[in-house]
Design a protein around this nucleic acid. Structure first.
Lengths: 174, 174
DNA sequence: CAGTTCGTTCAATTTGCACTGAACAGATAG
DNA sequence: CTATCTGTTCAGTGCAAATTGAACGAACTG
């Protein structure tokens, strides 16, 4: 336990330096814009400018979050390979620090998240083509609708394959 | 008014073909994952497999939405250059159709949305560096924190410039 | 000039999701 | 074994964003 213990819901008992505070805000907004919880972004920003790994409770207190939020947030970030857990010998707490190499983060997310989505999209595209054919067979759509639909789905497919051609390049360069 | 008029909140008085219905679901989920309103995605999916441009009311009725939602949704999509308005001579209604070339859509959004964000991020990075220096001056942070912070911010800057090098390439290829 | 037919805007409601406090489970120490 | 310290899970709460109905304004029509 620390000596000072007055703040309850306040951001922290000891305010963050402005650079740290601003960083937390930036990453929070970024996360929010990406459709992710704001608190998760705050955690990343806090850890990003932290010299030492921080424990769950330190994170929660510094940001004025509950332990629960800190726990879910850190696990999200770990899932995206943005931070990682570290342990100190003789200490049962979990500590967290940012993954230093941003290139690794992007690569890992490409391989573990984006790439699978692309493949799934590819399969879905095939399914849609089949549904379109089936609708033609059953008379649910006319010939013209079938033709136009097929054409548009193929334009997605072309774009899709072009993206798959480009991404591995980008992956290497980052 | 059409002849049949039983459905009130039902998706539509006449069910969509399966291919169309599935397409609407796919784009709806995609939009939602990107943090955009689901209804906007539905509209895009509907228009994507539509042979003719559709009016606001047709969209609203086919998807079981209010005219209000259809109106805001279409204007969002227009803002992203995903669809466009067309008019039929002697008809006061607005009609909407998908922008055929997906490459154009991506390029337009890169130039009008993503690129400016990247530039803003670049400026923000400079501000953060300055704040970090100021915190060192004022004694808010130690020398070590300043060094580590500077290093990490620079790693973002490097990644940032690499991305800016790669993106124009990708832009051409799509 | 009324009377329609459009699209948009706005207040009010609903929906969905982040966040929380409390209960829980696992591990360690005494 | 009991007691304590850790992180996680879960039902409940609150808030922000989406959606809607109704009012509005603009553009035609007769």
């Amino acid at each position: 336990m620390s000596s000072a213990s007055k703040a309850s819901t306040a951001p922290s008992s000891q305010a963050l330096p402005r650079s740290r505070f601003e960083m937390v805000e930036v990453t929070a907004r970024l996360c929010q814009r990406l459709g992710m919880p704001k608190s998760t972004g705050q955690i990343y920003g806090l850890l990003f400018l932290s010299v030492h790994p921080l424990s769950l409770e330190e994170i929660a207190e510094a940001l004025g979050l509950s332990k629960a939020s800190a726990s879910t947030g850190t696990r999200h970030l770990i899932g995206w390979h943005a931070i990682r857990q570290v342990w100190k010998p003789g200490d049962r707490k979990d500590y967290y620090e940012v993954q230093a190499d941003l290139g690794d983060v992007l690569r890992a997310n490409y391989l573990g998240f984006f790439k699978p989505k692309l493949d799934a999209a590819s399969r879905k595209l095939v399914v849609l083509q089949e549904l379109l054919d089936a609708d033609l067979q059953s008379g649910a759509i006319q010939n013209e609708e079938h033709t136009v639909g097929r054409e548009r789905l193929q334009s997605i497919a072309r774009m899709h394959s072009r993206i798959q051609k480009v991404l591995p390049f980008a992956e290497k360069l980052l």
